[in-house]
Simulated assay, not measured.
Amino acid sequence: MQDILLGLAFYLIIEGLVYALAPSFLIAMAKLLPGFSEGSLRITGLVAVAIGVGMVWLIR
């Protein structure tokens, strides 16, 4: 449980830094999202999940 909470805390820190340090970049990226197909966004998400699982597996 402690690892899950630690992961959530790191997620909030990183997400908060993006909003605090580069809000205009975040808005610009959000405006680009409708231009991507649903399939490419899904593939990108799955690749990110696979990389994250791989990193956790290597660390643990």
Rank of each mutant, 00 (worst) to 15 (best):
M1G: 11
Q2H: 14
D3S: 15
I4P: 01
L6K: 13
L6M: 10
L6S: 07
L6E: 08
G7T: 10
G7K: 12
L8V: 12
L8K: 11
L8E: 05
A9H: 13
A9I: 10
A9C: 07
A9K: 12
A9M: 11
Y11T: 12
L12Q: 03
L12N: 04
I13C: 08
I13Y: 08
I14P: 00
G16E: 05
L17D: 00
L17A: 09
L17C: 06
V18F: 14
Y19Q: 11
Y19I: 09
A20P: 00
L21E: 00
A22V: 09
A22M: 12
A22L: 11
S24Y: 08
S24K: 15
F25D: 03
L26P: 00
L26A: 12
L26Y: 04
L26F: 04
L26G: 02
I27Q: 05
A28S: 07
A28E: 02
A28Y: 04
M29N: 02
A30M: 06
K31L: 09
K31P: 01
K31D: 02
L33N: 04
L33K: 06
L33H: 03
L33P: 01
L33R: 05
P34N: 02
P34A: 01
P34F: 03
G35F: 07
F36A: 00
S37V: 02
S37N: 00
E38I: 13
E38A: 15
G39A: 13
S40N: 05
S40C: 09
S40Y: 06
L41M: 09
R42D: 07
R42G: 07
R42W: 12
R42P: 03
I43S: 05
I43D: 03
T44V: 11
T44S: 15
G45V: 04
L46N: 14
L46Q: 13
L46Y: 13
L46C: 10
L46K: 13
V47W: 04
A48F: 13
A48G: 10
A48I: 15
V49C: 07
V49H: 04
V49F: 09
A50D: 00
I51E: 00
G52Q: 09
V53D: 01
V53I: 15
G54H: 05
M55C: 10
M55S: 09
M55I: 14
V56C: 02
V56Q: 01
V56T: 01
V56P: 00
W57N: 03
I59Y: 07
I59L: 13
R60A: 14
